[in-house]
Design a protein around this nucleic acid. Structure first.
Lengths: 301, 301
DNA sequence: GACGGGGCTTTAGAAAAGCTAAATGCGAAA
DNA sequence: TTTCGCATTTAGCTTTTCTAAAGCCCCGTC
């Protein structure tokens, strides 16, 4: 492979094009430069290789034996390169790579993505679950869906998908004993990573001073916490996108109709270079509609 | 194929090398430039393609999905290019392309070339019969064997193979009636292209004033003339390299022992760029020896 | 036999690309 | 924390490559 260092690749391209088209002029047209430039490149190539590659005839250039023998291989190699490049471009157009917080992907997005595929068969969406906020312009992702607290700066190239709202969920059996918020104090609180995310805003939203609550089991991520809630292990303060489907299916119950804003926001951030991809715009539109539908549904409006 | 115009081929090479080696530093070593140069090329490539191709990790660069997908194709394409180049080089070393006057090729060289092949199995000799003197430096031939009259300029990069000598030949039956040169006047003269090449110098060399001779059949080339002589159609003034084998085999007879110089010379001319090819030197040495042997033999020394 | 055209080559100057070396940044391992 | 490995950036310099125009050669035409 190192022998490619000895001769500029552009020279090989000239050899290929001239061998294929038969004239310098035609090759020049194809490569988008003047014939003079090619003549020079060719001259250099022949000098570098120590042998003439084309016989100069009045009607054009005809390859020497040796050149004719390798020309098809050059053609095939460049065709391969060209094809690979095509694929790259095509894929760039038809494939969306989207980084999503796992919680959103696992409990909401992946159950709906099939519908997008049905409507847009030419587009393939790849979800990349990932917690860390990646710099989209460097990561190779076309877009990212992330939840940011109100305190965070508005991300670049981002549109708001929805305000995050929370509410307590529990198994339907437990819910039967819960009539007023204070009833919750009798239940263990299922915590994500030992934290009590969302409880403060919720009590306040309900017009109460946040009380001390009995600690229940803790799990590593919100999805596991929701499972625990389904199983009756306690009460869990759930994000709406996390719980809406479980609520719909009756796997968990929500005793109070209030949906309290935490101040966090879902953002759909687009990579600058992908901003013009039609597939990406379609996807964003689709997800916005889908969120609308989904929320309207389960909020019971 | 035109899409290759949009991005420098060297950038593709960087992509390939980095994808394969995993680090910029290793790729830089392979391509023989600094890592900084590659970083720049890569940056340009990513900009040109509108998408990042590698994720920057602290341990090196890791290709994005899309890049990983095309990388093997790039590798295969460059391997193909590299292989083609190798072949070109190898062939340049092991293949000799030699342009020869057809008369010399057909009656002398091709019957002996097999011996060269036996001694030098790695070298393959291609004879390109051709009358016109080609410019070796432009024709793609490594060497040429040509006969030039004394008046011609000594060709560049040429060594003398032998002085051309001529003598009359005829069928053994006819030869029985020929004791002195004047006996030839009773025979038809077989002519090449209506000409009487060689007769003047021969008569003079024999100490005679060139007489008028009876015209016989004419043929297009000397090889056909020799055939005619074998068949008893007359007498033919043959070049020694043309007739020596036929003489050896008794197909023609030469009544006089004198071998008269015409002043023409066989040259072995080498293309400048091929002058250092070991195979070419071997061939030249071989042909010189072969000529020595052949001439010594049939001159009966 | 001059003429014209197609096609390659040459030339000079200008533009662009590419390179190097060194400074910088950034994680991870020690 | 320090250090180490690796990538990136910067500035300046070299080298390459390009273009446009003129030149040359061969060939067929008028």
């Amino acid at each position: 492979m190192r022998n490619l260092n000895a001769i500029p690749l552009s020279a090989l391209r000239v050899i290929e094009a001239v061998a294929r088209t038969g004239t310098l002029a035609a090759a020049a047209e194809e490569l988008g430069v003047t014939a003079g430039a090619l003549s020079q490149r060719l001259g250099k190539a022949e000098k570098a290789l120590g042998q003439p590659l084309f016989l100069r005839a009045s009607t054009g250039l005809s390859p020497t034996d040796a050149c004719a023998r390798i020309a098809p291989r050059l053609t095939s190699a460049f065709t391969e390169l060209s094809g690979a490049l095509d694929d790259l471009r095509e894929e760039a157009e038809s494939v969306l790579t989207i980084t999503v917080a796992p919680i959103f992907a696992s409990r909401w997005l992946i159950w709906r993505i099939g519908r997008f595929n049905e409507c847009h068969p030419g587009v393939s969406v790849r979800l990349v679950p990932g917690v860390p906020l990646v710099d989209l312009d460097r990561s190779g992702h076309d877009a990212g869906i992330r939840v940011l607290p109100a305190s965070a700066a508005r991300p670049a190239n981002a549109v708001k998908l929805l305000d995050q709202r929370v509410f307590p969920v529990m198994s339907p059996a437990l819910a039967r004993g819960v009539k007023v918020p204070e009833d919750l104090l009798r239940l263990p609180v299922i915590r994500e990573n030992e934290g009590l995310q969302g409880w403060g805003p919720w009590w306040e939203g309900m017009g109460r001073v946040p009380p001390v609550m009995p600690a229940g089991p803790a799990y590593e991520d919100a999805s596991l916490c929701l499972d625990a809630a389904m199983m009756g292990q306690g009460v869990f303060m759930a994000w709406e996108t996390l719980a809406c489907d479980a609520l719909e299916r009756g796997q968990v119950a929500s005793p109070f109709p209030e949906r309290i804003r935490t101040g966090s926001t879902y953002w759909f951030a687009t990579r600058g270079a992908s901003a013009r991809k039609p597939a990406l715009l379609e996807f964003r539109n689709w997800i916005q509609e889908e969120i609308d539908v989904s929320i309207r549904q389960w909020r019971g409006t």
